[in-house]
Amino acid sequence: MTSSRPRSSARPQLSERATAHVRGLIMSGELRPGTLVRPETIGEDLGISTTPAREALQALRVEGFLELVPRHGFVVAPLTGEDIRDLFRVQALIGGELAARAAANATEQDVAELEALHHELIAAAARNDHDRLEEKNHAFHREINLMADSRKTVWVLGLVTRYVPRQFYSSIPGWPQATMDDHAELLKGIQAHDPDATRSAMEQHIVHSGELLAAHFDARVAAAEMADAGGSFST
């Protein structure tokens, strides 16, 4: 007899994967506000069944990314570049506090680990290895959060960053170079054990990232609207 436990433990992973996928499409501007999102389509795109895809859309409705329109289904909720900027501004305040604590707590081993991650990130950018670049970016920030040694603050940060996609960054014009430059400033602050400088560097880094994503989002939406307008005049 086969246990049902593997299936029950696998489903949340599938729905979470689908949630992250659709959230990323929305935040990147690929799915515009007002767009109908069908669980069947998401399931086909990810190679999963309709059930976890529908669970993902329900979760995104709770988060405010989708709306449920009677007799139509799930549609992308209103979203603007300014909304994205606001999310990153809040993240910057929390991330800055964690970075300041990390600078105060940093050991030689901690600094060496961050330096290694930074060099690996630079190497990935040079190879145009976007997946590796995003992986090392995430690891760099995770290391700083661990160094801060403040579980509750990290937990609060997690509530905010769940609305921000981990993917798509490397495809945004200017993001790889901005990440390398901003991380270098963060490293300087941590190497000097300067909480104030590190806080400022982290806040500027996160706000900068948000601006790049928001500008990318606005540009994609504007281009799509122009294409729609052009199509409406075609014969």
Rank of each mutant, 00 (worst) to 15 (best):
A227E: 15
D218Q: 03
A219S: 09
D228E: 13
T198Y: 04
D218N: 03
I190V: 15
G189F: 02
Q204D: 10
L213A: 11
A215V: 07
L212H: 01
R199A: 14
E225R: 15
M202K: 13
V221I: 15
A197S: 14
D194H: 12
A197E: 13
D228S: 11
A215K: 08
G230W: 01
L186D: 08
D194T: 10
M202E: 15
A229T: 10
A201E: 10
F233L: 13
Q204V: 12
V221Y: 00
T235M: 11
E185L: 14
G210D: 03
D228Q: 07
F233N: 04
D228L: 11
A219C: 01
S209D: 07
L213E: 01
G189W: 07
I206Y: 02
S234N: 05
H216D: 13
A197F: 04
D194W: 06
A184T: 10
D194Y: 05
G231D: 09
T198G: 03
A224S: 13
V207D: 06
Q204C: 14
A219R: 00
H183I: 14
D218A: 04
Q191A: 11
A214W: 03
A215F: 00
M202F: 12
I190K: 06
K188M: 06
M226Q: 14
F233Q: 05
Q204F: 04
I190D: 03
F217K: 00
V207E: 12
A219D: 02
E225I: 10
A229Y: 05
Q204E: 10
K188D: 09
I190A: 05
A224K: 10
H193F: 05
Q204M: 14
A184S: 14
A224F: 01
D228F: 01
A201F: 08
E185G: 11
S200V: 13
P195L: 09
E225K: 12
L212Q: 02
H208F: 05
K188N: 08
E203D: 07
I206P: 04
D196T: 15
R220T: 09
H193V: 04
L187P: 09
A201T: 09
H193Q: 11
A224I: 01
Q204W: 05
